Amino acid sequence: MYHVLVVEDEPLIRDAIVEMVHQLEGFKVTGEASGCEEGWRLVQELWPTLLVTDIQLPDADGLELIRRIRESQLPVVSIIVSGHDHFPYAQNAIRLNVSEYLLKPISEQELHAAISRSIGRLETLAEPNRMLVDIQRFIDRMPDCQSVELFEQADRILSAIFGGRSLEPGARISYLRVFLGKLTEYIKTVYPELREAELPDEAGEQMTRKLFHDLLHEWVRRYPQFAGNNMRLVIKRACEFMENNLQEEITLKQMADYSHLSVSYFGVLFKQYTGKSFVNYFNQIRIEKAMELLRNSDRKVYEIAETVGFASLPYFNRVFKQVSSLTPNEYRKSLGL
């Protein structure tokens, strides 16, 4: 199954692209974003293998997002869907090794054909992508792991990176730095004074393992002291604010500012305490409220969607089904309403 990230600021167009992708067997949209910064954050959290993005976005263009992916040597195939037939855009897309450049409006057949032409590249990126997904899973599970298990799993990931035969030149050090950056960022949530660790280009396997082991020893030493501190109250307060403002378009940055924390620090803390990413948590409490309204009122589905902050009905239906395994109408019928 190939995971897809769709970045498009127009809700109706984004809905259409998502539905087109879902019609293609073997592909699943695991993330949606309306801007470059949100898209970049989701790339580093969801690790998709395929990116479908517009060029013109509110905060920066889609080419900037692709440039960051290329500079980090991440295993992502990119398809651009643009309303602009400007030669300089196409030139930059070619320079960034974009797989396809499609002009709006696009049909389902056009998008499916473009994705099908990219299958060969996607297949070559499967192993590197698994490494990044394993890194993310390791980071997410750190608070629940015993120390012996932590070291064993970290060593397994490092062995996979050093032994990866399908990695492009330079990709190995890039993946090691992704792992190191995420590990350092996570440990800083419990020990903000931690010094930044650096991994030289020429670092060998033995030096690298020692660096990671030293960081994990710091985590094992510091985490028990941290687990009960007042950061729980900071996240609890943020969750209460979200619950009281379901109709608003609240972003991760807004909540970080509200909590007087950096975006990266807040994001890591939030996931550590709630067990979910910011977007997934906000969507879940919105859907839980929607389920309550479906049970206790005769309001129409689109009215309930608007009440809990979804401007797009198709997007509401998709998220509702992700959370409850049913569409809103199916949920109502299951209750005999």
Score class of each variant (00 low, 15 high):
Y2A: 12
H3F: 14
L5K: 08
V7N: 09
D9H: 13
D9C: 08
D9R: 11
I13K: 07
I13P: 09
R14A: 13
D15A: 14
D15I: 12
V18F: 10
V21C: 09
Q23L: 14
Q23W: 07
E25I: 11
G26S: 06
T30G: 11
E32C: 15
C36R: 12
E38I: 05
W40Q: 10
R41L: 12
R41F: 13
R41A: 14
L42H: 02
V43G: 03
Q44T: 12
L46S: 04
L46T: 10
W47D: 06
V52E: 04
V52W: 02
V52Y: 02
V52F: 02
T53K: 05
I55W: 01
I55A: 03
Q56S: 13
Q56G: 07
A60R: 14
D61K: 02
R67L: 11
R68I: 07
I69C: 07
R70K: 11
E71H: 05
S72Y: 05
Q73W: 06
L74H: 01
S78E: 04
I80Q: 00
G83K: 01
G83D: 04
H84F: 14
D85T: 10
H86L: 14
F87Q: 13
Q91P: 00
Q91T: 12
N92C: 11
A93Y: 08
A93D: 07
I94Q: 11
R95Q: 13
V98W: 10
E100G: 01
L102M: 06
L103S: 07
L103Q: 09
